[in-house]
């Protein structure tokens, strides 16, 4: 079983959507969210597997996000849009991520994942990696 999925299941038994997920990856990259910058965001992570582990641990404590495939991507897409993201090169996206993360730390939007104090946006990014890795290809 995919590790991210196993951890998600261990963390939140009630997550109906994830319950039938298989080993896969790439759902979000192939879905409509790519246009909203989500695909570019995920492309920033060279090791999606490592990010997905963190995402799984975090989503395990956020059933409201883990129990649907599109709630988290929509939230993240909205935040990117609100920050003025209309697409651009990878360096511009990196800079935007850095500023969103900084804002989170400034405003105390800090999440605890295995004791690591990461920003809400970092957690969301890892959560996306987890969802992306968990979603069955057939349903993409």
């Amino acid at each position: 079983m995919d590790i991210a999925r196993r951890e998600i299941l261990a963390g939140a038994a009630a997550m109906a959507v994830v319950a039938f997920a298989g080993v896969s990856g790439g759902f979000l990259l192939r879905s409509g969210f790519d246009r909203a910058g989500i695909a570019d965001l995920l492309a920033l992570l060279p090791d999606k597997h490592a990010a997905a582990r963190i995402g799984a641990a975090w989503l395990g404590r956020h059933n409201e996000l883990a129990s649907s495939w599109d709630t988290l991507p929509r939230l993240v897409a909205e935040r990117l849009a609100k920050s003025g993201w209309r697409g651009g090169d990878i360096d511009a996206l990196r800079a935007l991520v850095a500023s969103l993360v900084r804002t989170d730390f400034e405003t105390g939007a800090i999440e605890d994942v295995d004791g690591w104090r990461i920003s809400r946006f970092q957690a969301e990014l890892c959560g996306l990696a987890c969802l992306d890795a968990s979603r069955p290809k057939a349903r993409g």
Partner: peptide
């Protein structure tokens, strides 16, 4: 137990700078 999350944390940092 720390290994998997440390790799992910390192990646988040590399992403930042």
């Amino acid at each position: 137990a720390e290994r998997p999350s440390e790799a992910g944390i390192a990646q988040l940092l590399q992403l930042q700078s």
